[in-house]
């Protein structure tokens, strides 16, 4: 029986990268992949090698090749959930590595204070210049929204028993829009846009936004879905029609401003009560 404590089975501080059901599912897939690939490669290599080598040696070579190829494929399948996690956090990982490697290189190549000063200057410029700050903030929101959407989709799938837990949609990329962010999502087999119907409000809440709207992003691929996150209204200003420009040369006097009809009967007291309708006495 598993050991249990006040914090459960897991040690304090442990972080789950891949959930247990997903991990089990991919372990099973890895075993199947190993067997299929190993057998296929072994057969093909043995048959090919038997032309030039003795049969026993050809079988040995085939088995070895199959084993190696199967192992490689099984490893890739087994660690695929972890690779996916790396993809989700790719931006942060690349940014952090670049920052620390760059700072370490600069401090070694120059004075230890130089990278800190440079960092302070960059941060100062970014936060000081409004336009730059807004641009950076918009891209940061894109990074945040990708994570929020992923968590939200995971929650939807967890709450839907018919969906396999490993079938999380792939969050492709996100870009800022004047209203918020636009994110493209690739749905895995077993999912469709209908599965997300009625969940727009939940997505908006998860993304700390005002609204979320989903729509098919491609006529060719039903799996490609676009999610528009709205956190501000860019359509508040007055929009002029280009038709106005055509008549800008006309003077105001040209437009009729006084009605041709005398202002009579415009109030209730000026209008007499209409005659009552004749009712059919048979009814």
């Amino acid at each position: 029986m598993a050991k249990s404590g006040i914090f459960g089975e897991r040690p304090v501080g442990a972080v789950t990268l891949v959930e247990t059901p997903v991990s089990r599912s991919y372990a099973q897939k890895a075993r199947v992949a190993f067997l299929v690939v190993a057998a296929s490669v072994a057969l093909v290599v043995a048959a090919t090698a038997s032309v030039a080598l003795p049969l026993v040696l050809a079988v040995v070579v085939g088995l070895l090749s199959g084993g190696v190829c199967g192992l490689v494929v099984a490893c890739v399948v087994r660690v695929w959930p972890a690779l996916r996690v790396l993809w989700w956090w790719a931006f942060e990982i690349v940014a952090a590595v670049t920052l620390f490697v760059g700072m370490a290189y600069l401090s070694r190549a120059t004075h230890p204070a130089v990278p800190l000063v440079l960092l302070a200057v960059v941060l100062g410029v970014v936060f000081g210049v409004g336009r730059l700050r807004r641009r950076v903030s918009a891209w940061v929101w894109c990074v945040v929204v990708r994570h929020r959407l992923r968590l939200c989709f995971a929650e939807f799938i967890r709450s839907t028993s018919r969906l396999h837990p490993g079938r999380l949609p792939l969050i492709l990329w996100a870009r800022p829009t004047p209203a918020g962010e636009r994110v493209w999502v690739w749905l895995r087999p077993g999912l469709d846009l209908m599965d997300l119907d009625g969940k727009a409000d939940k997505l908006a809440v998860a993304c700390w936004a005002g609204e979320a709207r989903m729509v098919r992003a491609s006529a060719k691929h039903a799996a490609l879905v676009r999610v528009d996150i709205t956190r501000r209204d860019p359509l508040t200003g007055l929009v002029a029609s280009p038709l106005s420009a055509w008549v800008a040369w006309m003077r105001d006097e040209d437009a009729p401003v006084s009605p041709a009809m005398p202002p009579l009967g415009l109030d209730l007291l000026d209008v007499p009560e209409p005659a009552p309708e004749q009712r059919n006495p048979r009814r």
Binding site: V215, V239, A240, V247, M250
Partner: peptide
């Protein structure tokens, strides 16, 4: 669906365009 903001023609602009 596409979120739009309709361009605005005020009464004077409409009257001018109509006359023209």
């Amino acid at each position: 669906p596409q979120l739009i903001k309709a361009a605005y023609l005020d009464d004077a602009a409409c009257a001018r365009i109509a006359i023209h």
